[in-house]
Amino acid sequence: MTPVLQGIGLVKRYGRVTAMDGADFDLEAGEVLAVVGDNGAGKSTLIKALSGAVIPDEGQILVDGSPVRFHSPLDARKYGIETVYQDLALAPAQDIATNMFMGRERRRPGFLGTALRLLDSRGMRAEAQRVLDELGIGIKSMAQPVETLSGGQRQAVAVARAAAFGTRVVIMDEPTAALGVAESAKVLELIGRIRDRGLPVVLISHNMPHVFEIADRVHVHRLGKRVAVVSPRTHTMNQVVGLLTGALRIGADGEVEEVAQAVHTGLDR
């Protein structure tokens, strides 16, 4: 199966610092792929490259098997890749519908839209309500300012915006980081609904229980590159932590092994 989104040998240097060192990545259709790694592992740079915010120095990005080159997040959007950033990028004083269509506002049809450039506020509110209802997000009024919403509801609005315009991929950066237990559960449920609609999701998270609850596969990033891709069904949380810290690695037979043991037996390269 051709990956929906793929990175091959991606390299990004900032002076003497190499943030990506031949990083690989592949996202399959209809899955939630979690990307995990310690701070400084380079996972943020990888995601920024895949979403158009960073231009790699070397390597290749492919969408549905075809090479692409993103110069900005707008280029990635044109390929149906939407990103929900950790700061959500919402305008608190504006209403929900305005935030949903920010940068993609719809004009009224005919003379009012073309000559007077009036916005189709009613149409945008109706479409925003439809998307939120479809995703099971219980917010009644699209005229409600975002600043009046709870943290979980704000996250849901940002996710719904990505789901509304993302036709290939939705990327989420720490979507439950500032949320309580109940609101985190709702966001994870929302991620599952997006996957069930056939839209693959990339989830960047430090929360291992959340990763193991929702992810189909786990991409482990360390020292600027992918060191493993494992399944929560076949690997434990402790094994994933060991892989991202370097205490464990995937051996030649595909099994997880201790790095110290490999050194002791002379197999470490």
Rank of each mutant, 00 (worst) to 15 (best):
P109F: 07
G110W: 02
L112E: 07
G113I: 00
T114P: 00
T114K: 11
T114I: 07
A115K: 05
A115V: 15
L116T: 03
R117C: 01
R117P: 02
R117T: 00
R117Y: 10
R117G: 03
L118W: 04
L118H: 03
L119V: 12
L119K: 04
L119H: 02
D120T: 04
D120N: 14
S121G: 01
S121L: 13
R122Y: 11
R122G: 06
M124Q: 12
E127Y: 04
Q129V: 00
Q129M: 10
R130M: 08
V131P: 04
D133W: 05
D133P: 00
D133G: 14
E134L: 11
G136S: 03
I139R: 00
I139A: 00
K140H: 14
K140S: 15
M142Q: 10
M142I: 05
A143R: 13
A143L: 08
Q144L: 13
Q144Y: 02
P145S: 07
V146P: 10
L149G: 03
L149P: 04
L149W: 05
S150P: 03
S150Y: 06
G152R: 06
Q153P: 03
R154E: 01
A156K: 12
A158T: 10
A158K: 06
A160C: 09
A160I: 09
A160W: 13
A162P: 15
A162S: 14
A164M: 15
G166L: 09
G166V: 11
T167R: 15
T167W: 09
T167K: 15
R168P: 09
R168K: 15
R168Q: 14
V169T: 13
V169I: 14
V170C: 14
V170T: 14
V170K: 14
V170R: 12
M172L: 15
M172C: 13
E174Y: 12
E174S: 11
E174C: 12
T176L: 09
A177N: 05
L179K: 03
L179I: 07
G180Y: 12
V181F: 08
A182Y: 12
A182K: 15
A182E: 14
A182S: 13
E183V: 08
E183Y: 02
E183F: 08
E183G: 03
S184V: 05
S184R: 08
S184M: 08
A185E: 15
A185N: 13
K186C: 00
K186I: 02
V187D: 11
L188N: 02
L188Y: 06
E189H: 12
L190V: 08
I191Q: 01
I191N: 04
G192H: 05
R193C: 06
R193D: 10
I194T: 03
R195I: 11
R195Q: 15
D196F: 00
D196N: 13
D196R: 13
R197P: 00
R197A: 11
R197V: 00
R197Y: 00
G198E: 07
G198W: 12
G198M: 08
P200I: 06
P200R: 02
V201P: 01
V201R: 04
V201C: 07
L203S: 02
L203W: 08
I204C: 02
S205C: 03
H206P: 01
H206W: 06
N207G: 01
N207M: 03
M208E: 05
H210Q: 15
V211Q: 03
V211Y: 00
V211C: 03
F212A: 01
F212H: 07
E213P: 00
E213L: 09
I214W: 10
I214P: 05
A215L: 10
D216H: 13
